[in-house]
Computed example of a mutant assay.
Amino acid sequence: MTYEAELIILGKIIIALLLGAAIGYDREKHGRDAGIRTYAAVCVGAAIFTSLAAHLGDTAAASRIVANIVVGIGFLGAGIISRDPGGKTSFGLTTAATVWCTAAVGVTIGLNEFIIAVGTTGMLYFLLSLHHQPWYKRWKAKVQDNESD
């Protein structure tokens, strides 16, 4: 691998760090266990594996590596999800889903799809911050009131 190729991959890793941190910012701001560091690490890891796989020039090997990122993050997500002792309420579903999506952002960076990565980061941040928006809180309360009738 040439120095130029390594520097390009390092640039991708820096972008992954920034986008992953941006996704985790809202979680960190509101005191969630998975925050900036978790989301940034997931995005960086996915970008590193994908960048190196893409550099190999073997499409089949790169496809296997990306598929294993998806599976690996699925296991991480399964560990994040839990139920209360009564088994009626689940916790961690949003975190697990957004960690999984953050890995996908890392994969897109590794594959040089920067516009998709930035756009998806914005969408994920919006989704994570949604429950703090007053209009969303009113809408959700209205929906819950209608369900209890």
Rank of each mutant, 00 (worst) to 15 (best):
A54W: 02
S148M: 09
C43Q: 06
V70R: 09
T2S: 15
Y25D: 02
N68L: 03
S148G: 02
G77R: 01
Q144Y: 08
G57P: 09
D84C: 07
A97Q: 06
F75R: 09
T2H: 13
E4P: 01
H55A: 15
A103S: 13
K12P: 01
H131G: 08
I109K: 04
W100V: 04
T50C: 07
T89H: 11
G77D: 03
H30G: 00
E113H: 09
E147Q: 13
E6Q: 13
A16V: 05
W100M: 03
Y136T: 14
A60I: 12
A104V: 12
I9T: 11
L18C: 12
A40S: 14
F49G: 02
S129P: 03
L52M: 13
G86F: 09
L10N: 05
F75C: 10
N68H: 15
A141W: 02
G92L: 07
M1W: 11
E6W: 14
N146M: 15
L10F: 12
C43Y: 03
L17H: 02
H131M: 13
I36S: 04
A103D: 06
A53M: 09
G79E: 11
G87E: 05
I8L: 13
A53T: 07
P134D: 10
V105W: 08
G122H: 12
I115C: 00
N112P: 00
A67H: 04
Q133E: 10
V143M: 12
A47F: 07
L127K: 07
A117S: 12
Y136Q: 05
V66C: 02
A41K: 00
V118W: 06
S90D: 04
V143Y: 10
R83Y: 13
I115W: 14
K142H: 14
L17F: 14
R37P: 09
G119P: 01
E113W: 09
A21Y: 07
L128E: 09
R27W: 12
E28M: 05
K29N: 14
I36E: 01
W100F: 10
T2M: 03
S63K: 11
C101D: 02
A53S: 14
Y39G: 00
H132A: 11
I80L: 11
L19K: 02
V42R: 01
G31K: 14
A61Y: 15
A96F: 07
G87P: 05
S51W: 04
A141D: 15
A47K: 04
K29A: 15
A41V: 15
G122R: 05
S51E: 04
G110R: 05
F114I: 15
E28V: 02
I73Y: 07
R64S: 05
G35Y: 08
I8E: 12
Q144M: 12
A53C: 10
S63D: 15
Y136R: 04
A40E: 01
S129Q: 13
G106W: 06
P85F: 11
A96C: 09
A60W: 07
